[in-house]
Design a protein around this nucleic acid. Structure first.
Ligand code: FES
Ligand code: FES
Lengths: 145, 145
DNA sequence: ATTATATCATAGTGAAATAATATGATAAAG
DNA sequence: CTTTATCATATTATTTCACTATGATATAAT
């Protein structure tokens, strides 16, 4: 049970953008270098985020990305759901998945319970919380961006 | 983020054995059929469990497996750790993994927090709780085993 | 207009993990 | 000494992961 690098990178990207919220558009190349992530891979991640409206884009020269919404208004569950695709710990929990054993299954409640504590945690934590942490750790540089 | 079938099957196996705790040795074939799991795959899972002492084994004819410890004394974290190998949501949390970015990383706390809520949940839930659920759902048959 | 810059989009690839399956050895009961 | 059931390794098919490659498209600056 591991979260994908897609989610880990995506979260780091959003924290990076969140720390520079209301600033200029930032090009991916800079972010990729700064976060030590393959730019081509980041492009794919960013394309996953775009349709949800969480980031806004400027194409062409001097283009780039910025966060489109207030970090205080986004929680981690929303982010994880976009990046991880679906955060159910097992397939049986998905509505679309019709497990024949569901009626007599005694373990489904275990997974439901697990999903609940994970969901609660992710909903409780806003992007802003992580951004604040980022800012405090990178405080020296934040004025020079 | 999905838990492996190894963990799901293994849990179902242990619940099955737990519901028959203090009974005879049960052969894998019966369990595999009843739980609709490939017997050869179950053999591998069972071999994962054996060295931990959670189950006891009788070889040869009329052999099989039974739970070696009281279901009330085992929690799900112990089970998951055996089956899943390591239940950290990302590598950076493992002590053996020396992530160069840890010092300035602002997302590590997110993962640590997530790990904590998962661990807490799994520790709080005993195998007995799942077994009780199993028994109540299968109550009709429990007297004829 | 043209060029430089940066995003957009799809396809492909190598490695690893997953979920089995196959084959045969070993141990114990009857 | 045969049947039964576990023990152990090896092999395989499928899928997922984490990129990588190639080229198209859009826009700012010259
Ligand atoms: S195995 Fe699908 S609901 Fe339990
Ligand atoms: S990326 Fe490893 S600690 Fe954050």
């Amino acid at each position: 049970m591991k979260y994908s690098t897609r989610t880990r990178y995506g979260l780091r990207l959003l924290v990076y953008l969140g720390a520079r919220y209301k600033g200029k558009f930032l090009k991916l190349n800079t972010i990729a270098e700064s976060e030590k992530i393959s730019i081509k891979y980041l492009e794919q991640i960013v394309r996953l985020l775009k349709p949800t409206g969480i980031i806004s884009v400027a194409r062409g020269a001097h283009g780039g990305y910025k966060l489109a919404v207030d970090p205080a208004e986004i929680n981690l569950k929303q982010i994880f759901t976009i990046l991880e695709g679906n955060i159910d710990p097992i397939e049986c929990l998905q509505e679309s998945f019709d497990c024949k054993k569901k009626v007599l299954c005694s373990t489904i409640e275990v997974w439901q319970g697990l999903q609940t504590v994970i969901d609660d945690y992710l909903e409780k934590n806003k992007l802003k919380d992580v951004v604040d942490n980022y800012k405090s750790k990178h405080s020296i540089n934040m004025f020079y961006i």
